[in-house]
């Protein structure tokens, strides 16, 4: 991912045996793969992602097709409604998989956007320090203090429910935390002698940040990503629960759960199955995050 550099092996090893170094990433990967919980979680996450992406192509039902002849059907292998149907006779499995596409991609995209903003903001504040840092962190604190949920609700009411707006609303909150974490890590990295040496070599501040600070932040950032995706998914569910999420006929896990909870007594499957998918995903991400944290040598940071 970040900062793994390879140089021309051919020329270096003219006549010499090929000696390849073990980067810290390779070490971390080995340790991660020794962690059974993390590997299982990774496997589950991959299965759920693949199912969400490709599953709907192999199912006979469409996510928006209503079938008035078979509403509130319980899970049934014969009819092809493996996980049953909802009040409009739509197939639950397909809807869960479609919802998964949406929930997972909101989780991933909103996270990546906030990581992008947070890393730039945090490294600049942490690296340059002084008054700039104080100013930038005040801005973050002020934004933190905003009752953002009310903000989001008002904006959604004014501008209507729009999926891009959902991304924006979530991203606008999450980058604050990222910026803080990155700033703290940057400040401790800045004290390292290799940063000072690089300055003494004549390297520009921008390149020091790009070549040395960010690659060395990559570990904590990756760990944080795995913890942020679940929080974004939950945030989206929460907004959906309030009726501010995605719009029909589109769906997300949050929407499905909130609908399912209303019809829990009549049709238990409408709550249980979407809930199960979400819980497995969130738990997997947490296990992967823990595994990564252990795998990426803590004494490095």
């Amino acid at each position: 991912m970040f900062g793994i550099r390879k140089y021309d092996n051919k020329m270096v090893n003219k006549g010499a045996s090929i000696v390849k170094g073990r980067s810290l990433w390779i070490d971390a990967r080995r340790r991660l793969f020794q962690n059974k919980a993390a590997v299982t979680a990774l496997f589950l996450l991959i299965v759920i992602s693949l199912l969400s992406i490709f599953g709907p192509f192999f199912l006979q039902h469409n996510f928006s097709d209503t079938d008035w002849g078979s509403i509130y059907q319980s899970p049934n292998l014969q009819t092809g409604h493996y996980l049953g149907t909802d009040g409009n006779g739509r197939d639950l499995l397909v809807r869960i998989l479609y919802g998964g596409r949406l929930s997972l991609s909101i989780g991933l995209i909103a996270t990546l956007v906030s990581v992008f903003i947070g890393v730039i903001y945090g490294t600049i504040a942490g690296y340059f320090g002084g008054k700039l840092d104080i100013f930038m962190m005040r801005v973050v604190e002020i934004l933190y203090a905003m009752p953002y949920l009310i903000f989001v609700i008002i904006l959604m009411v004014v501008f209507g429910r729009n999926i891009y707006f959902l991304f924006l609303a979530i991203g606008a909150v999450e980058w604050l935390t990222m910026a803080r974490i990155v700033r703290g890590q940057t400040i401790s990295l800045k004290e390292k002698e290799f940063i000072e040496t690089s300055k003494a070599l004549g390297q520009s501040d921008l390149l020091i940040i790009i070549k040395h600070i960010i690659p060395n932040l990559a570990g904590p950032i990756v760990v944080y990503i795995t913890l942020m995706v679940p929080s974004v998914i939950i945030l989206e569910s929460f907004l959906s629960f309030l009726g501010l999420g995605v719009q029909e006929p589109l769906t997300s896990w949050g929407v499905l759960i909130s609908e399912g909870s209303r019809e829990m007594e009549a049709a238990w499957w409408l709550l249980i199955f979407p809930g199960l998918f979400m819980v497995i995903t969130l738990a997997s991400l947490n296990f992967i995050g823990d595994g990564l944290r252990d795998a990426i040598d803590p004494k490095e940071y």
């Binding site: 550099r5 390879k6 170094g21 980067s23 002698e193 290799f194 040496t197 003494a200 690659p215 990559a218």
Partner: peptide
């Protein structure tokens, strides 16, 4: 130019020896 006291601390742990010298 300068060299510092801590031999490990003055090398970026994410870079290969070759790319460090090349910087």
């Amino acid at each position: 130019q300068i060299i510092f006291q801590d031999p490990y601390g003055s090398l970026d742990p994410r870079m290969t020896i070759g790319s460090i010298i090349k910087e």
